[in-house]
């Protein structure tokens, strides 16, 4: 219950921002940060809770973005329906990649490699297929009406992405409290032991992959509606695969708030650097790469994890002080 309360407080605080902040630049920054947090929350479900590190979440992000865009522009489908279809299509890609990879027993490095390869295949295909606009990309027609998933005010866009992030936070929190989540974590910690306890590791991993893909695909669909443009390098580019894993790693893998905290930290640093040196290509990703290495070296459990570690240590010290005799027997 405590977890859900915290989510409610955090989301309410974020929702209040447009009441005081009217700067489009700031709101834009927050929209992008929340978008990355959403993509990262998708990665976190599979990578953080399930221990399966994907290097190719662009495959789901891009599918969400392209399906949203293509259905609208080529088939005149309503944007919201296109968005839902994008999530479904992203999940389907997750199911296919997951089935192939987990059936083949691919783990760690090999799983990372195969997800990366799938994302690259989709990127190349999208850059040549006529239906996606090939190399030119695809513009979504400006139509600033809520029923077209486009909004006059940036604040509304902001509230929509915030709502999506809120759903993802609640999903993660429910995962932590559910049997499915417990089994997923068990598979991460030791697959053999989990199977001996009745956990169907393949189905659990596959389920996590589909959920993970759905969340990241939602981020992709939102991206298309917000920027009204997709091309292969954006939708299926390595940048999003990297940012999707970077945010939970920085914030804390396998924690509810890790991706959100990580996205805010990473984006702040990236934007801060741009203020200092100007927007030179490569700067933000260079910083992200360095952050990845430094965080793993010095803050291995991420920002949220570091706080949890400290509070754990304090708790244990208090307990130990209270019952020194017991600890001595079993220590």
């Amino acid at each position: 219950m405590k977890g859900f309360l915290l989510i409610a407080i955090v989301v309410a605080a974020f929702a209040a921002v447009p009441l005081v902040v009217h700067s489009n630049v700031t709101l834009n920054f927050l929209v992008v940060a929340l978008l990355i947090a959403l993509a990262g929350q998708g990665w976190n479900v599979l990578g953080g809770y399930g221990g399966q590190y994907s290097f190719g979440h662009a495959a789901f992000f891009g599918t969400g973005a392209y399906v949203t865009a293509v259905l609208q522009m080529r088939y005149g489908v309503n944007a919201w329906i296109g968005f839902a279809a994008g999530i479904a299509a992203g999940s389907a890609v997750g199911a296919i990649v997951g089935t192939l990879a987990f059936r083949a027993g691919l783990r760690s490095s090999y799983f990372a490699l195969v997800t990366l390869a799938f994302a690259e295949v989709l990127r190349i295909l999208a850059s040549v297929a006529p239906i996606t606009g090939a190399g030119v990309g695809m513009l979504i027609k400006l139509d600033l009406r809520a029923q077209s998933f486009q909004f006059q005010s940036r604040a509304l866009f902001y509230l929509v992405i915030l709502a999506l992030v809120a759903v993802a936070l609640v999903t993660a929190q429910m995962l932590e409290r559910s049997r499915f989540g417990a089994w997923l974590i068990a598979v991460r910690e030791n697959e053999d032991a989990a199977m001996a306890l009745g956990v169907d590791a393949f189905s659990i991993k596959l389920g996590a992959m589909v959920l993970s893909a759905a969340i990241t695909a939602a981020a992709g669909g939102f991206y298309a509606q917000y920027f009204l443009f997709v091309d292969a390098g954006i939708a299926y580019g390595t940048w999003i695969s990297i940012e999707a894993l970077l945010t939970p790693v920085i914030g804390g893998v396998g924690t509810v708030f890790g991706p959100l905290v990580g996205a805010l930290a990473a984006k702040s640093l990236g934007e801060g650097a741009k203020l200092v040196t100007g927007d030179v290509p490569g700067l933000d990703l260079m910083i992200y790469g360095a952050m990845l290495v430094l965080v793993i070296r010095f803050v291995p459990h991420g920002i949220v994890g570091a706080f949890a570690d400290v509070s754990d240590r304090i708790k244990r010290r208090v307990l130990a002080a209270r019952a020194p005799a017991r600890e001595a027997v079993h220590g």
Partner: peptide
């Protein structure tokens, strides 16, 4: 398991 396999992080 003879060689114990705890969920170490839990």
């Amino acid at each position: 398991f003879q060689i114990t396999k705890p969920f170490a992080g839990l």
